[in-house]
């Protein structure tokens, strides 16, 4: 195992992509108790939208990027409204089936509109490297890491410091009481789905350069993201982000071990996950709020 900076930074870059998807999973899970299996596929679909804007239409990269993020936001909000809200009071398994159905739906839509051939999606970042502490770190890694971190910080700021964020925390904490405060719970949950989808779309577009764009691109990512969310304690947004980074770096490091290699790295990474959970079953950031009655 080489503990070199280059490996760690490339692990952090892909880890920030896992973290973004994990953040979306956690935002939805903590407010509704729903595991959104379609989180990754919605991101892929939005990435294709971005690809069409940039490559087919020929828009400047960041214009297409922002439009795709906007489209993803609307998509998330609409999915909540038409697919989730009608079943949200149904038994848990029903809701799981619906999000699995959405997974299949978005996968099929990507396939239908953009076919299965792998498409390169050029990176918006320079191709060279920067010389730091005796090694070379690629601009692409720095760019992916930086942009995901900015998008996740944006979500954090919305949550902490805005009125809408306060309402989101209220709906999560006590939906009956929040309705009695005049909050439209449905609208707030829609917003939450939109925000999660937007962060997912950013992750998808950043990952598309590393992973190449194809309809199944985010499936591996989703697996890592679930693991990241679990490490983070399932209900902690900060935990999800850190969990993602832990998964990314662990994965980069174990796949550099010659007898593990990239074939077994997924399995090895999950062994690390299990070890972490053996020590802290509630995850790194899982905690229970004390409530006196």
């Amino acid at each position: 195992m080489h503990l070199d900076l280059q490996l760690i930074t490339s692990g952090l870059a892909i880890g920030s992509v896992y973290g973004s998807i994990a953040l979306g999973l956690v935002l939805i899970y903590r407010s509704t108790g729903i595991l959104n299996f379609a989180q990754g596929e919605m991101a892929t679909f939005s990435t294709y939208i971005g690809w069409s804007f940039v490559v087919s239409v020929g828009m400047p990269y960041w214009v297409g990027f922002l439009l795709a993020v906007l489209a993803a936001f609307l998509l998330g909000a609409v999915v909540e409204r038409v697919a989730i809200r009608p079943v949200q009071n149904q038994p848990h398994l029903t809701v799981v089936i619906v999000t699995l159905g959405l997974f299949l739906l978005f996968n099929a839509l990507s396939l239908k509109f953009w076919h299965s051939d792998v498409r390169p999606f050029r990176s918006p970042f320079p191709s060279g490297s920067v010389h730091v502490l005796g090694t070379y770190i690629s601009w692409v890694s720095i760019g992916i890491f930086g942009v995901s971190l900015i998008s996740m910080a944006f979500v954090g700021i919305v949550f902490r410091f805005t009125k809408v964020g306060l309402a989101m925390r209220a709906v999560t904490s006590n939906p009956m009481a929040s309705a009695l405060m005049g909050i439209s719970n449905g609208r707030i949950l829609s917003l939450g789905w939109g925000l999660s989808a937007a962060v997912g779309a950013i992750a998808g577009m950043l990952a598309a350069n590393r992973l190449l764009l194809d309809p199944n691109m985010m499936q591996g990512v989703l697996l890592y993201a679930f693991a990241a969310a679990v490490i983070g304690g399932m209900t902690s947004p900060v935990g999800a982000v850190i969990g993602g980074l832990v998964m990314g770096v662990t994965n980069a490091l174990v796949s550099s071990v010659s007898w593990i290699g990239s074939d077994l790295s997924l399995a090895a990474t999950f062994i690390v996950l299990v070890l972490i959970l053996l020590v802290r079953p509630q995850g790194l950031f899982g905690r229970q709020i004390e409530v006196r009655v």
Partner: peptide, 10 residues
């Protein structure tokens, strides 16, 4: 409402 429905974590 009945039962002091505070937002416990806030």
């Amino acid at each position: 409402p009945e039962g002091r429905e505070v937002f416990a974590g806030l």
